[in-house]
Simulated scan of single mutants.
Amino acid sequence: MSAYPQTTVMDTSSRESYQDAITVEQFKKSYGPHTVVDGLSFRVHRGEVFALLGPNGAGKTTTVETLEGYRKADAGTIRVLGLDPIRDAQTLKPLIGVVLQQDGLYPALTAREVLHLFAGYFAHPQNPDELLERVGLTSAAKTRCRRLSGGQKRRLALAVALVGNPQLVFLDEPTAGMDPQARLATWEIVQELKQKGVTVLLTTHLMDEAERLADRVAIIDHGRLIALDTPENMMGTRNARSLRFVAASGLDCSRLAAALPSATAARELRAGSYIVETDAPENIPALIAELASWLRDQQITLSELRVGHGSLEDLFLRLTGSEVRE
């Protein structure tokens, strides 16, 4: 029996389109004989951060590019802010911001020049210099784009996406190439967007990023939706009956279980990775305290502790496989 809860493809979204920033229904896309997206359906609520995850070749990029109006669906319904991305492109474009995988910045312009250029396309843009400061590029404002580092280019691309005060932002691998400080700053910006009611569609290969930022997560593989829920439900942290922790390998699990009054079982899943189970979710706080005390008394250092059945990355690998794809 799997240690994971049964994950079902379930979308509790309202069927009323005015509550949805994005509607995808039975979307199909093929390139010649190769089907890239096969009957994909999901909805993104207004004002939520929605993560679209999948291995390479799963159909993520094709889906996002179709939502952005760069590709045309072969079949199905695509609506973004209630509009058709291709037919209503002129109306839709001023309402969205896009961070592409390939930044496409003008190499000969400075960061400030690029942002002022894009600000000129909108009726009520943000102040470009204030936005440069917000993404941490004030010191690089006079640097030409071709001389920016990879992380700096990603931050400038984010600023370009936000300069028009969009209602919906597409973030495709937004923190790729960023150092930890810039990555954290970007996370804070995403959280600020949510607080302002801006909808964010995020694609990322960083599971902790999706876990930290997303209200809901969709996992697709081979062009099909295989899971859709909140990170908490996917990881089993809500109504959880287990703890996972990482410590020295070879602990005596029978002795461990016997020492914790709230525990019903303990086992080592793999070297240094353990699970301790209890019989009711309300026992979890006591179990955490008991485990911490036992480890302290045994002078065992705890390097990781999770409530529930595992990380989002664990679930992702279980659902999509662990092989590397081109």
Rank of each mutant, 00 (worst) to 15 (best):
E232Q: 15
A227I: 05
K194D: 07
K196D: 14
W187C: 01
R183S: 12
L193C: 09
V217R: 02
A266I: 06
A271W: 04
M235P: 00
R267D: 12
T204W: 01
V200N: 03
A248P: 02
L206F: 14
H222E: 10
A265P: 00
D252Q: 13
V198S: 01
L251C: 04
R212Q: 14
M178A: 02
A210F: 02
E211A: 10
D179N: 12
A259T: 06
P180A: 09
R270I: 00
A240M: 08
V246W: 13
R244E: 14
M235E: 04
R255C: 11
R224N: 07
N239V: 00
G272H: 11
D179P: 10
A218L: 12
T230V: 11
T203D: 06
L213W: 11
D208Y: 08
V200L: 08
S262R: 04
V200H: 09
L206Y: 15
A266W: 04
I220D: 01
L269E: 15
Q191W: 01
A214N: 12
K194F: 07
T264W: 01
A257Q: 13
D208E: 15
T264L: 11
A185I: 02
V217G: 04
L251H: 05
T175W: 02
E232K: 12
T237L: 06
R183N: 11
R216M: 02
V200D: 03
A271E: 14
A257L: 02
A258E: 13
R216V: 03
T203V: 08
D229V: 11
P231N: 03
L251A: 04
L201Q: 03
A227D: 06
V190A: 13
R244Y: 08
R224Y: 03
T237C: 08
L202A: 09
S254N: 14
V200W: 06
T203Q: 06
A263V: 08
R241S: 11
A258H: 07
A265D: 14
C253K: 01
E209S: 06
L184R: 15
K194P: 07
M207G: 11
A258Y: 00
P261W: 05
R244S: 10
H222M: 01
T230D: 09
P174H: 00
A214S: 13
L243Y: 10
A248H: 12
R267Y: 12
D215W: 08
M207A: 10
R238M: 03
S242W: 04
L201K: 06
G272E: 10
A210K: 03
T186S: 10
L243M: 11
I226V: 09
W187E: 09
G272S: 10
L184K: 13
M207Q: 08
D221F: 04
N233L: 08
L201S: 06
K194L: 03
L251P: 01
L202C: 12
R224K: 15
L243F: 11
E232I: 00
R183C: 11
L193D: 09
S273I: 12
L201E: 05
G272Y: 08
A266Q: 05
L256I: 04
T186L: 00
D179E: 09
R212I: 07
V190T: 05
L225A: 06
L225V: 08
I220H: 05
